[in-house]
Nucleic acid binder design. Sequence first.
DNA 1: ACCTGAACACCGTTCAAGT
DNA 2: ACCTGAACACCGTTCAAGT
Lengths: 232, 232
Amino acid sequence: MATSPDPFNSRSSRKVPLNKDAVLSTALEIVDAEGLDGLTMRRLGQELRRDPMSLYRYAANRAALLDGVTEVVLDELTMFAEEPDWQAQLRGMAHDLRLLALRHPNVVALLVTRPLSTPLGLRPLGTLRPLEQILGLLIGAGFSPTEALHAYRAYYGFLYGHILNELRECIVDPEENEALLRLGLHRLPAKDFPHLRALGPVLANYEGDVELDQGLTILLSGLAAQLQRKDR
Amino acid sequence: MATSPDPFNSRSSRKVPLNKDAVLSTALEIVDAEGLDGLTMRRLGQELRRDPMSLYRYAANRAALLDGVTEVVLDELTMFAEEPDWQAQLRGMAHDLRLLALRHPNVVALLVTRPLSTPLGLRPLGTLRPLEQILGLLIGAGFSPTEALHAYRAYYGFLYGHILNELRECIVDPEENEALLRLGLHRLPAKDFPHLRALGPVLANYEGDVELDQGLTILLSGLAAQLQRKDR
DNA sequence: ACCTGAACACCGTTCAAGT
DNA sequence: ACCTGAACACCGTTCAAGT
C-alpha cells in the first residue's frame, strides 16, 4: 500500500534516514489512517522517531506539510494513458483521479480546499500539472486556448464535484451500510422528505464509476459539439 | 450584510440575549471575517461576552457548531424561484447557490467537506433539503426516481465543482489581481507550463456566471435529451 | 552552523466547585 | 438544577541554550 519501501513498520523499526520524501510519505500514511486532524507535528515526529522540531527543516510549517502531502498524492497519477483521442483521454484521466480519491479519501478535502485563495501561480506544482496537461491536450485537439481553458474548467469542475458527491455518499463500513442508511433516512421527517426516503434502496448501491461515465458522456459530447461547430 | 439585526457592533454593545440563532449567526460572522480557523469556542464566547463554556448549551461541540453554521448559510437560499420549467429552475438555483458561495467563501469548504463520511440521514437537514427539493422537481418533470437521483448528482456535482473552481481562481484583492497573477505565473518553469503561462491575460478575468451558464447549458440539454428519449 | 527541547500562547473539553 | 471557571491534555511555533 505504501509507495516508498516500508518507511516504518509500526513501532518496531529504528531510526529512518530522514529526507523530505520520507517525511511526506509518512505524513500521508498518517492522514490515510487517521484523517487530517491526526496529522500533527508531534505525531509525525513520534512516527519518525525524531524531535518534532526537526520537521521544520523539511516543511516551513504545517500548511506546507499539507501542501507536500497533496503533491505526493497527485504524483501517484499515471500521467498519460495512451488513448486514441482526446475524449478517451479525458475519460481515462477522470477515472484515474476518481480511483486516486477513493484510495486517499482523507486527502480529497485537501485537494479541494487547500489551494482556495492561494494565487494560482503560487500553488504546489503538482496541482497545476494536470491543468497544463489538459490544456495541451485540448489545444492539440483543435480548441483555442481560451476555449480549452473553459473546457478544462467544465471538465474538472464536474470531475471534482462527482468525486465529492461520491465520497459524501460512500459509507465506509460495508456491513452497517444498509442498516445505517435506513436508520438515517428513518430519522428524516416523512412529510418533508418523501422522495429521499423512497429512494432508500437505490441510494444504498451507488456505482460511482458508472455515474461518472454517464456524466462524462454528457459533458464530452457537449464539448465535441462545440468543436464540430467550429470546424464546419 | 448581517442577516440578523446587529448582533454585536464591534466591542461597544453589551450583553446579547443568547439563543442558538444568535450564537450561530455570530459564529457565521466570525467565519466570514476571519476564516474557519478564526472560529474558536473562546473567540466566539468573547464576541458574545459569555463564558466560552456556556456555548456548550447550544452546540454539543465545535463540530456541531460548524454544522450549525452550514445550516444557517443554506437557509439563506431563497427556496423556490417561480420559473416556468425545470431547466430554468435548476439554472436559477445554481446561480443562487453560486452567489451564496461568493457571499460566504469561507463556508464553502464546510459545505463541501463537512458531511464527508457522515451517513446521509444524519446530516444537517439544511444540507438535505436541496436534494429533496430537486428530486421533487425532476420527478415532476417526468424523470423516474432513480433517474432523478442520477440527474441530481450530475447537476450538483457540476455545480459544486464549478463553485470550487471559481473560488480557487478568484483572487480577493482586485488591485493586486493582475500583478499577483503574473508574478505567480512567472514563477512557473516556462518549459513545463507553456499553455498555462500563455493564458495569463485570459485567466485574469474569470466571468464565473457566464461559465457556469455555459456548463449548465451542456448539462441540461444532455438531461433534456434523456427525457425526450423516454417520452418518445 | 546546526540541532535540540524548554517555553509560550494558544486550542477543545472535562469536571469539580460554586450558586 | 444550573452555571462557572479552573484544570487537563493537547496543539503549532519561537527561540535561547546547548553542541
